[in-house]
């Protein structure tokens, strides 16, 4: 029982950064912009969150700083993709490279420093509920907010006016434009929203998950988030599933480490998230041709009126 609680709690806890980043990326890609800068935005978000939090002593400012930093990078990407009609692949990669360098360059003085961090949720009497209580007690409000964001983004895409515009812009910007939908502003907004959540996901790492700043502390989670968008076939609900899968593998790694039971060598466990991502991507790509939804039709293509 304790083992199960341990694994479940860490699963949930570890899945949040990937969940946040992939929810953001879903919105971005639904509007037709491919953002490969997520990894960089998470890194800069992690650094900004830590630094602002440490300097100001305020968690709120920390998270706010992280979101602002992510959005700033997203603005760069959006400008290059939307106004300069650049290749979205190269622009995204460039943003990741730039952000990796920036976080390392500016973050050097903060390595090993102690900052602030977000504590666990006061669950009160809920703690007595078997399984749910103890698992919940190890979470925090950001985790709950991230979970709440899943139905919220799903509703926004399916049942709201802005969601209709976003879907139209990502599927056929020319038709959307002809119908009077402001294509460029919507794409900007969606890209910025993606950057905001990526930054927040990064700050979760540096302010909640493993408080402190470490170079390259995202360890590819931004890339995994992008893969999870494909796994989720651009739907928020399935993104939660993908993120939990990733969190589960991380939890198993911790579990084996903690119990010393080397059922599977540690290095294999470290490989699994990456291999699994490839495997999932493969399955989804092969299966989607028959049953699942497809990518937004205009994903990755610049739009401009003739």
């Amino acid at each position: 029982m304790d083992d199960l609680i341990f694994i479940l709690a860490i699963t949930l806890k570890s899945s949040i950064p990937v969940l946040l980043a992939s929810l953001g990326e879903i919105i971005t890609e639904r509007s037709g912009i491919l953002n490969l800068g997520v990894e960089g935005m998470m890194l800069v978000g992690a650094l900004a969150g830590f630094v602002v939090g440490q300097q100001s002593g305020s968690l709120l400012l920390g998270f706010g700083g992280a979101m602002a930093a992510g959005m700033l990078l997203a603005l760069v990407h959006a400008f290059f993709c939307i106004h300069l009609r650049a290749s979205q692949v190269i622009s995204g990669l460039a943003v990741t490279i730039l952000a990796t360098g920036l976080s390392s360059f500016l973050g050097r003085p903060f390595i090993g420093r102690v900052g602030i961090h977000l504590g666990s949720l006061p669950v009160g009497p809920l703690a007595e509920v078997p399984l749910v209580g103890p698992v919940l007690a190890q979470q925090n409000w950001l985790c709950l907010a991230a979970l709440a964001l899943v139905p919220l983004t799903a509703w926004a895409l399916a049942g709201s006016w802005p969601g209709l515009s976003i879907r139209a812009v990502g599927e056929d910007p020319e038709a959307a434009d002809a119908a009077g939908v402001p294509v460029a502003p919507i794409r900007y907004a969606c890209t910025l929203f993606g950057g905001l959540l990526a930054g927040l996901g990064g700050a979760y790492l540096s302010l909640v998950y493993t408080p402190g700043w470490k170079e390259g502390m995202t360890g590819g989670q931004g890339w995994i988030a992008i893969a999870m968008v494909i796994f989720a076939t651009w739907r928020p609900g399935r993104a939660l599933l993908g993120a939990l899968l990733f969190g589960g593998l991380t939890a198993l790694q911790f579990y084996f480490q903690a119990t010393g039971a080397e059922l599977v060598p540690a290095w294999i466990l470290r490989l699994l998230p990456y291999l699994l991502t490839v495997g999932i991507l493969f399955l989804v790509t092969v299966l989607k041709r028959t049953r699942f939804g497809a990518a937004p039709a205009a994903l990755g293509q610049p739009f401009f009126r003739g």
Binding site: V76, F80, I90, A94, I97, L98, G101, S104, F105, R108
Partner: peptide, 18 residues
């Protein structure tokens, strides 16, 4: 930090795009 070169690389790639 030597990672200034990484920053400049990323900026260079963006500048070429622009």
């Amino acid at each position: 930090p030597a990672s200034i070169s990484l920053v400049l690389e990323g900026a260079l790639l963006l500048a070429i795009l622009g």
